[in-house]
Computed example of a mutant assay.
Amino acid sequence: MPLKAFRGPKVWLWRWRRNPLRRRADVVEAWVVLGAFLLTVLAGVLAGLAAAGAVEHGLARERTLRRPTVARVVTPAPAKSAAREDRASAGERGWTEVRWTAADGSAHTGRIRAGSGSGPGTPVTVWTDPRGRLVERPTTASEAALRATLIGLLVGVSAAAVPCVAGLAVRGRLERRRMRAWDTEWARLGPQWGRMV
């Protein structure tokens, strides 16, 4: 509390006001802080929006290219073993080989995870690309929006960190320079104080 009495009231934007005690270093520091703040906000927002837009566009394109296709089980999926029966869930899935026909009429085979006990000829839905190859199920629009938002936030914060850290580094350097100048002045004028009293 007593320290506040020595500081006096807080004056906003004092580095830009006319004041005989204001030094050139104070003005430079004020501009550095303002520039770093503006660059931090701009870099974060622009990079985040660009990354989110790119991710969402890519996932939307992926949704348009991937198609569900009906495939038939070729080899039966492994049935639940008696030892694992007690801890196995009702939706347990095992690897099995399936066959499907692509849009161009070519036959394809691949391995997928299907419900345990699926017999030969059982229809299953698989996702394929335009060339008929197996691919992962595309993300839904809501999953894509969430993923784009999270990646946009991560990229935005990462991009904003660069000008923020640079501004702090420049400000620290200015502070050290100002302290050296103050030490030099004090070394020159300090011994004269004793003679004035």
Rank of each mutant, 00 (worst) to 15 (best):
V73G: 00
E92W: 08
D86S: 14
G105H: 11
H108T: 12
E92D: 15
P76C: 05
P76R: 08
L134I: 07
G91W: 07
V98H: 07
A102Y: 00
L134P: 01
A141C: 05
T96L: 05
W100Y: 09
V74L: 15
S118V: 05
A79Y: 02
D104W: 03
R111Y: 11
W95L: 14
R93A: 10
A114V: 05
R111T: 14
A79D: 11
R133A: 15
W95V: 11
H108D: 06
S142F: 00
V135K: 06
G132P: 13
G110H: 12
S89Q: 15
R113W: 02
W95Y: 10
P130L: 13
P138C: 09
A83G: 10
A83L: 13
G117L: 02
V74S: 04
G94C: 00
P130Y: 09
K80T: 13
S116H: 09
A77D: 06
G132C: 12
E136Y: 02
V98Y: 04
S81C: 02
A102S: 14
S142G: 10
V126L: 00
A114H: 06
T140F: 01
T101H: 08
P120F: 00
E85G: 08
T101N: 05
P123C: 11
S81P: 06
E97A: 13
T96S: 11
V73E: 01
W95F: 10
R131N: 14
E92C: 00
V126D: 01
T140A: 03
D129W: 05
T96D: 04
T140D: 01
I112H: 05
S106M: 08
V73A: 01
T125E: 14
K80E: 12
E136D: 15
A107F: 06
A82S: 13
W95A: 15
T128V: 15
S142W: 03
A103V: 08
P120G: 11
E143C: 06
A114F: 09
E97N: 06
G119L: 01
T140S: 15
P78Y: 02
T122W: 01
R113D: 06
S142L: 07
A82M: 04
H108S: 10
P138R: 07
S106Q: 14
G121S: 13
A77Y: 08
W100C: 10
G115S: 12
E136P: 02
P78E: 04
P138L: 02
A88I: 01
V126K: 02
A141T: 12
P120Q: 07
T125N: 06
W127Y: 04
R84N: 11
T128Y: 07
R93E: 00
P76W: 02
D86T: 15
D86C: 03
V124Y: 08
V74H: 03
A79P: 03
P138A: 08
A107Q: 13
T96C: 10
R111Q: 14
G91I: 07
E136F: 06
R99N: 04
V124T: 05
V135R: 08
G110A: 11
T101R: 15
P120V: 04
R72C: 01
A114Q: 04
E143W: 05
R93C: 04
T101G: 05
E136L: 03
A90W: 09
R99T: 14
T128G: 01
S89A: 15
E143H: 08
V73P: 01
A88D: 12
V135L: 04
